[in-house]
């Protein structure tokens, strides 16, 4: 198998000791770029392909060290926003000098080789926990060339591979290529109702439905439903999703991922509005009820992945 170890991708995090995204203990490679813009997205820094600055005002000591180093003149202590997002090109010069890590750059170019070097560090933990590697994002297939090379490199090490995907992938050949190196697909299904889907994710679900069938035909697939109050956290929607999942080959498990607000803070750091503001988390009884719905449709149900 030929592998291009020098191919570069844009990575915004490599998170070791992950325990909710596939079996065992895993390392997740978070890639940048996503065609969807879900209102509840907990990794909004991943949506754009280019590196983004995060600014955490409560860490800032207003020392002013960053102001003169910005090549774009995008920083100003006069404005509340501090960063002019129009001007910022994500070069990271300010983050480099910031003494308190109030400014942090999200996203950097890494080669397949550099990523694999980090993945290798937890080989023993994959072995002892039956874990492996999960590629996530963003949408893991936006950079499908990089994803493919990375997965090939994982397979020659004998690691279990999984992907978290929206299923919103334009190129069928990309799917064919990537999924032949995968042991597990964690396929997000947000809503069976296309109107709702369009409203909350920005895209139609037709392509996702088409791809889901291809993916399930190639790779062991688990359907994951981010369960959002006011969007899809109701019996009707969950039943519809289960009905769809029943048409996918070999799908026997559905993960309900209850809405959480862990990502809300990031919107502020990115200087963007959070559209689901003031949405409460689901209560235990509400989650239990939805779990019962999934079970009544004949699926094994896991809460939280």
């Amino acid at each position: 198998m030929k592998i291009n170890y020098d191919l570069e991708g844009i990575v915004f995090d490599i998170q070791r000791f992950s325990i909710h995204d596939g079996p065992g203990i895993r390392t997740i490679v978070f890639l940048k770029g996503c065609p969807l813009s879900c209102w509840w997205c907990c990794n909004p820094e991943a949506q754009s392909l280019k590196p983004l600055m995060m600014y955490q005002v409560d860490r800032c000591v207003h020392c002013g060290l960053c102001l003169p180093v910005c090549p774009q003149g995008a920083l100003s202590s006069e404005t509340d926003a501090f960063i002019d997002r129009e001007k910022c090109i994500g070069c990271g010069a300010c983050a480099k000098i910031c003494p308190t890590e109030a400014l942090v750059l999200k996203g950097k170019k890494m080669t397949v080789n550099e990523v694999v070097d980090i993945l290798k560090k937890d080989e023993a933990i994959y072995r002892h926990s039956n874990g492996g590697i999960t590629i996530s994002g963003g949408e893991a297939l936006v950079q499908y060339g990089f994803t493919t090379e990375l997965l090939k490199a994982c397979k020659i090490n004998g690691w279990h591979t999984a992907v978290e995907t929206t299923g919103y992938i334009g190129s069928e050949s990309a799917i064919n290529e990537v999924f032949s190196y995968l042991d597990l697909a964690l396929l997000d299904v947000k809503s069976y109702n296309d109107e709702i889907h369009k409203k909350y994710t920005g895209v139609s679900n037709a392509l996702i439905h088409k791809n889901a069938k291809i993916i399930a035909g190639m790779t062991k697939t688990v359907v994951r439903v981010p369960t959002i109050p006011g969007v899809n956290a109701n019996e009707k929607e969950i039943r519809a999703i289960c009905g769809f999942a029943a048409t996918l080959k070999g799908v026997d498990t559905i993960h309900l991922l209850p809405y959480h607000t862990y990502g809300e803070n990031k919107y502020e750091l990115l200087g963007r509005p959070y559209k689901l503001e003031k949405t409460p988390s689901l209560t235990e009884p509400e989650i239990d009820a939805l779990e019962e719905v999934v079970k009544s449709c004949g699926f094994h149900c896991v809460i939280g992945g």
Partner: peptide, 13 residues
């Protein structure tokens, strides 16, 4: 650790 999410305790709101 939450499914599909990347951050540390101390950066949460």
């Amino acid at each position: 650790r939450v499914a599909g999410y990347s951050a540390q305790f101390t950066v949460l709101a």
